[in-house]
Design a protein around this nucleic acid. Structure first.
Lengths: 234, 234
DNA sequence: AGCTGTCCTTGATCTAAATCAGGAAAAATT
DNA sequence: AATTTTTCCTGATTTAGATCAAGGACAGCT
């Protein structure tokens, strides 16, 4: 019998509607599929890419999650991204041809590996793929700039609300519950990402729980009052 | 006699080495040049694009400068970018086909207008142009994420130092002085962008002047001790 | 040149969130 | 199952930067 694990294709991947092949015709998708390879599963804390390493592949997250971070002058981690299934990892490295951050699994994570050379060739021939690539980068750019706007000049609870709503939206986009989900990152990771101390994250989660906006149990979060959370996020 | 103003071409534009055509062959550059149009000059405070307007062109800044901003729920401006000569405006709108921010001239500004449809066609045929587009988006993405990292969790003086060093680098890249330059944005704009109040910007500039790190005279800034500024930025 | 509105600076006060501290609960490792 | 390590929570204290306040310097107008 054929091992099904070794035969994952874009055509039968549940993430396809969100991922790179989302707007491709059947034929185009099949062509893209031929260049895509599977990557061995990562365990929690495994590194996918290291800053400065040459960029050879873009990675598509199939399941699990990761964080990307840089190290500042003092070797302190600075988280710049969380990646969920359907996300592509590596766009920020295209300009230099080298990765500019570390990317580490937050839990057991499965990935597809897309060789850049082949992708570039394909994008010459497939206008839809080319536009999709541009579009995904553009979205990431927008999200990143939005984040800037919603962190600067905003109170701690607004930042955290924005973060939770962003996650909620992304889970919902993936066909999962946007109301009830698991945080694969620690409170410290969240604080690092949105510029707050762990204690502040913890306190605000507790407060929102008391105010019946959230229900928090360890890593599990349930949004009880989406409207109030949205009002908080501003 | 031919009016020279009406005959600006990539081939004789001083910004070409930084701008979209930077890596193109002579022939490719000439082809790109045929689709590029000039935009009428903007005066200070003129809007180039409005949020929600359909995206038809990318704009390349030839001279002058602009700021991009969104409006939050309460109609408060939130600056997400400053554009200098050689920069391209509009990348964050590719995904939706609509602009997602307002872009306004900070001074008299000259621009080139690049029709998106033609650019897409060209990028199918010109691999170097395609990669250049991707590369420019990637750079912008990286800068944006870097900024996130260097604003979060950082003291006010480190933020401002980072901002000034970023400007300095960009001026230097453009063949201008990285040591002595003019701020085309107000203190309030800077504060808005890096998440500090006007007063704090003003105070830190004064302090850095007293400490002989900077020389500030209205809009003019001279960096006296680059090393100390870099140490501050961390 | 003089007027008007915006922009910048400096000082005094206040406050939100960081830091310090300690303990409890999970999770990983043995 | 027991032990170690990491993560999370809550309280007390401190502090960096916001806010309030007011005067002075520019820049754009007429």
């Amino acid at each position: 019998m054929v091992n099904t694990i070794s035969h994952i294709h874009c055509q039968n991947c549940s993430m396809a509607p969100l991922c790179l092949p989302k707007n491709l015709s059947e034929g185009d998708m099949a062509r893209l599929d031929t260049i895509i390879q599977r990557h061995k599963p990562l365990h929690k804390k495994d590194l996918l890419v290291t800053a400065d390493a040459p960029l050879r592949y873009l990675y598509a997250v199939r399941s699990g999650s990761l964080k990307s971070y840089t190290l500042d002058d003092h070797g302190v981690e600075q988280i710049i991204d969380f990646h969920l299934p359907g996300d592509l990892v590596g766009f920020d490295a295209l300009a230099t041809g080298r990765h500019r951050s570390f990317t580490q699994a937050l839990e057991t994570t499965m990935l597809c590996e897309i060789p850049l050379n082949s992708l570039d060739d394909l994008s010459a021939e497939m206008p839809v793929l080319r536009r999709e690539l541009m579009s995904m980068m553009s979205s990431e750019l927008y999200t990143s700039k939005q984040l800037l706007g919603s962190l600067n000049n905003r109170a701690a609870d607004a930042r955290l609300a924005h973060f939770l709503l962003g996650l909620s939206q992304r889970f919902a986009d993936r066909g999962l519950s946007g109301k009830s989900f698991r945080l694969s990152m620690t409170r410290a990771d969240i604080g690092n990402y949105i510029g707050l101390s762990v204690e502040t994250i913890s306190r605000i989660l507790s407060r929102l729980q008391h105010e019946n906006v959230l229900l928090v149990e360890n890593k599990l979060v349930e949004i009880l009052a989406m409207d109030r959370l949205e009002r908080l996020a501003g």
